[in-house]
Design a protein around this nucleic acid. Structure first.
Lengths: 170, 170
DNA sequence: TAAACTATGTCAGCATTATTGACTTTATAA
DNA sequence: TTATAAAGTCAATAATGCTGACATAGTTTA
């Protein structure tokens, strides 16, 4: 008897990595790895009045210096009301600077201040340290596979969401 | 000039996958892939009064049928008060059954009811579908690398947290 | 130029999911 | 029998998301 949600392997050897159990293991791996992935920055953030949402904002402002508010909204995929709360705190606390657009004065370009860069580095150092040791332990070939699978997992998301994200990533 | 947070490659070829930029790309990849990874179940859950926390509970009760409440707490890494709210709803709604332990009557063993299994399958189908197509597109070697890197990312987390999780995973 | 649209910001209210702390009930162990 | 353990509960609080409504300034278009 084959349940309706069971994968039926056509060629056993080639499809073994696609059995339901393999997929469920991958799903749990994603869950636990993501937990580990965020745990170091989360610990650091406890010393501040900031949370994960602040980390994300700071990360992407650092990576795409001078990006517009609307760009950040597209990247994060949240509402402007949600982002605004976070951004307002960061700006009031002097970690982020919001400069009026030069071409279009309605736009605001976002930058990290020196203090903002300090926090970004602190968070990034912790997260990169874990990634580096994982990459090193797994080796270059594994890293290629890791990246490839993650890109494929993203793919559907990007198509169904904002198409601009892919450009922003690279 | 080399900043204090720059990786200094010893042998250029071998270390290229460990540059700060490569690591930051990996970090963003994790972020976006996780978003995609949760997006399908999240959509389904909007038709119910449930959220991601319910999904997790249902997933692990299905995967480790009859597990104790304390096991679930260890796996999820949340407080019993947080879990209790979610579990109470699932039990009241008839998706989860809580049976008194046979050896130790203080313990409660958790099971999905038929309705619980129905929901689990619905959520799991969506998530596995995305994983399957990603795995298929990336190929078996990439999947091996993917799994290896995720395990390494987890490692630190497990050591610093509940050691029992690793047993529970396999 | 006047009207429509765009980018940003803000207020208020609400939902989900997490936290801490205090306490109860029941059952097992010392 | 007293101490410990597993589970459940109440109350208060926090972070982060949402919707809806609205304001202000600047740009486009008719």
């Amino acid at each position: 008897m084959v349940g309706h949600n069971m994968t039926i392997p056509n060629s056993m050897d080639a499809m073994l990595f696609l059995t339901d159990d393999q997929l469920l293991q991958g799903i749990e791996l994603m869950y636990f790895a993501y937990k580990g992935f965020t745990s170091d920055p989360d610990l650091i953030l406890q010393n501040y009045t900031y949370g994960r949402a602040h980390h994300r904002a700071v990360h992407f402002i650092n990576r795409r210096k001078g990006l517009k508010v609307s760009d950040l909204l597209d990247i994060l995929g949240i509402t402007k009301q949600s982002l605004n709360r976070v951004l307002r705190q960061l700006i009031n606390d002097g970690l982020v600077e919001s400069r009026m657009g030069r071409k279009d004065k309605r736009e605001r370009n976002l930058f990290l201040t020196d203090d903002g860069e300090k926090l970004e580095r602190q968070l990034s150092d912790a997260q990169r340290k874990r990634m580096r040791s994982a990459y090193r332990a797994a080796g270059p070939d594994a890293v290629m596979g890791f990246r490839l699978v993650l890109e494929k997992i993203m793919d559907g998301e990007i198509l169904s969401g904002s198409t601009k994200i892919k450009e922003k990533l690279t």
